[in-house]
């Protein structure tokens, strides 16, 4: 199944690996920051509704 990469294995796998790691980190940070902001905003809006 795995293609024969020969002497290019380090370069090819390094390119795919580094890209996947960087993009995955970006996705994780984006999702976590999104969830945190959603939670904070929901709590604040609830607090403000309670005050009215």
């Amino acid at each position: 199944m795995m293609p024969e990469l020969g002497r290019y294995a380090i370069s090819v796998l390094g390119s795919y690996g580094s890209t996947i790691v960087l993009v995955s980190a970006l996705i994780i940070v984006t999702v976590l920051r999104g969830r945190a902001s959603k939670k904070t905003l929901a709590a604040l809006e609830l607090k403000h509704k309670g005050k009215r």
Partner: peptide, 17 residues
């Protein structure tokens, strides 16, 4: 920024070969 960095790293590895 992340996409640029990914392109630079993969480009450097491609360039090495």
């Amino acid at each position: 920024a992340v996409f640029t960095l990914a392109a630079i790293i993969s480009g450097a590895l491609w360039g090495s070969t």
